[in-house]
Design a protein around this nucleic acid. Structure first.
Length: 503
RNA sequence: GGCGGAGUGGCCAAGUGGUAAGGCAAAGGUCUGCAAAACCUUUAUCGCGGGUUCGAUUCCCGCCUCCGCCUCCA
């Protein structure tokens, strides 16, 4: 089945026809490493991770390149403020970015080129642009001459003459022939990081790195170029102008842009100061919850963020976790039966698999695709409710369905909690870690003290579950509830998995 | 001013020319010693006004509101 993607260039969905069938070469603009990334950045990276994973899930061989902008005005400014070298700032936040991506479960790019390691290549491209008359030199700076490129404005659909020019006076403006011209090379000011070039020491402009590195690693006319919607203009417009002026060939085939994340109806951005750092969020919420939040809205739509939206996302991912746990428990408690409905479940899952793919094939509609997963969760739960001894094959299929489809969207479904089970109940110890001291004193309070000092939390909880079970069997519900409430109070959820049989 | 996007149940959010997925929340019910989990049931004339059509939430026109971009931006 053909995958359709919305191409910003054509403003419509197009069938994805790559240069080489079965292969997708994609480039996504990475971060400028001058600070920790915020949730808005995270949305973009998560969206492209979802797209990449789904393509791979569909059997496509993806080459994924994402740059690191490690030389830039913002980095230099930050370095000046902190009084440390610029490369130190860049390195620090580059590593932080990698940590954040790993924590989020974003697959690392196949290639993560850094601007500072490709200066020579950029200089060469700039030199050709100057040679071809697409760029001019002014006091050690080099600017791209927008008027020399006929298609300028094509990607972002704008006519420069109709745009409001709100440029402030600056020395740089003085050097430009036209306010819309942009820097390919910036002459170094004292103390700034710089590299030698035919135009004197300096550093590359922002856009040139992407034009250069994408083509270097993926070849001209590569398949997909992505980034946040706010990069369409000027960044991508400029990238394309440079690259096509340089080579004379088409730059990228499909332009995919990820919608903005808003807080209180406004875009989260540095200039507005309404930033929520990803790190902050990850302290409180697990990666699947964050991803769930993003998957719930189509990647091109604006996503309005609030504290509550995370809590809701958390509740919905829990529904999936719970289902998986039920499947596990059903397997542990026999699972070898020949319960009816197994075949029916299997064919229902077949159907849901097909609609899942249809939705994802249609411009990566993760929100609709999630709906099919939840549909499956309900079917599985109903099946589990009705079957005394569900057949192992059906359980296996159910588990595989959920894991596979969640995996295609990048949901890791890693146990966010450690499960301790007795024969009639189980406890979920949140992975955030429980308070050891309080657990010990609570155990003592419940009359469990002998040799608990060295005992791992799991065993301690196990003893408590068993004590509660004894209490329940002797109808001492006061004590049973005291144990359950006490554990709940420690963030350890206790649930009964089957009824007590009087025997 | 130019370009683009959006307005769907209490909240979030898909979607379609033939009366609208899913999640969260709420209420009632089943199950449970009680909970939790799970299941069932209940809650939408799809911003407003016209038009096209046998029929529009979906297409067209106008209006209102909101958001993004117009050289910091994911």
């Amino acid at each position: 089945m053909a995958i359709r993607v919305y191409n910003t260039m054509s403003r419509s969905k197009e069938e994805l026809e790559t240069i080489e069938p079965g292969t997708v070469k994609m480039y996504v603009c990475g971060p400028t490493v001058y600070n920790y990334i915020h949730l808005g950045n995270a949305r973009t990276f998560l969206n492209f991770d979802m797209i990449r994973r789904y393509l791979e899930y569909s059997g496509v061989d993806v080459t994924f390149v994402q740059n690191i902008t490690d030389v830039d005005d913002k980095i230099i400014n930050r370095a000046n403020v902190e009084g440390v070298p610029a490369d130190e700032i860049a390195e620090k936040y580059r590593l932080a970015f990698e940590e954040d991506m790993e924590a989020l479960g974003v697959k690392p790019p196949d290639i993560a080129p850094r601007a500072t390691e490709h200066i020579a290549e950029m200089v060469e491209v700039i030199a050709v642009l100057v040679e071809k008359g697409h760029a001019y030199v002014a006091d050690g700076d080099v600017y791209f001459d927008v008027s020399s490129f006929a298609g300028y404005g094509r990607l972002s659909g704008r006519d420069l003459s109709e745009q409001q020019v709100t440029v402030q006076f600056s020395p740089e403006m003085e050097r430009k022939r036209d306010p819309w011209d942009f820097a390919l090379w910036k002459a170094a000011k004292p103390g700034e990081p710089s590299w030698e070039s035919p135009w004197g020491p300096g550093r590359p402009g922002w856009h040139i790195e992407c034009s250069t590195m994408s083509v270097q690693y993926l070849g001209g006319g590569f398949d997909i170029h992505g980034g946040g919607l706010d990069l369409v203009f000027p960044h991508h417009e400029n990238e394309m102008a440079q690259a096509e002026a340089y080579s004379g060939d088409r730059f990228a085939r499909y332009w995919i842009h990820s919608g903005m994340l808003n807080i209180d109806q406004e875009k989260m951005s540095k200039s507005l100061g309404n930033i929520k750092m990803l790190r902050e969020v990850l302290e409180e919420f697990d990666p699947d919850t964050v991803r769930m939040l993003m998957l719930g809205t189509h990647y091109r739509s604006p996503l309005s963020f609030s504290e509550m939206s995370l809590t809701e996302a958390r509740a919905s991912i829990e529904r999936i976790w719970n289902c998986l746990e039920r499947i596990e428990s059903a397997g542990d408690n026999g699972g070898g039966g020949s319960g009816a409905g197994g075949n029916e479940l299997t064919s229902t899952l077949e159907r849901l698999d097909a609609s899942f793919r249809e939705h994802m094939d249609d411009d990566f509609n993760s929100a609709a695709a999630l709906g099919e997963i939840f549909e499956a969760v309900r079917e599985v739960n109903t099946f589990l409710d009705g079957a005394e001894a569900p057949p192992a094959a059906a359980l296996q299929r159910a588990k595989q369905f959920i894991m596979e489809h969640c995996g295609a969207l990048g949901l890791e479904l890693e146990a966010s909690s450690r499960i301790v089970a007795s024969s009639t109940s189980r406890a979920k110890i949140s992975s955030a870690g429980s308070d050891r001291g309080r657990l010990l004193s609570f155990a003592a309070e419940a009359g469990i003290e002998a040799e608990t000092g060295e005992m791992p939390d799991e065993e301690l909880v196990q003893l408590l579950l068993e004590a509660r079970q004894v209490a329940r069997e002797s109808k001492d519900f006061t004590r049973a509830d005291m144990i359950r409430d006490g554990l709940n109070g420690l963030g350890i959820q206790v649930e009964d998995i089957k009824r007590l049989r009087p025997e």
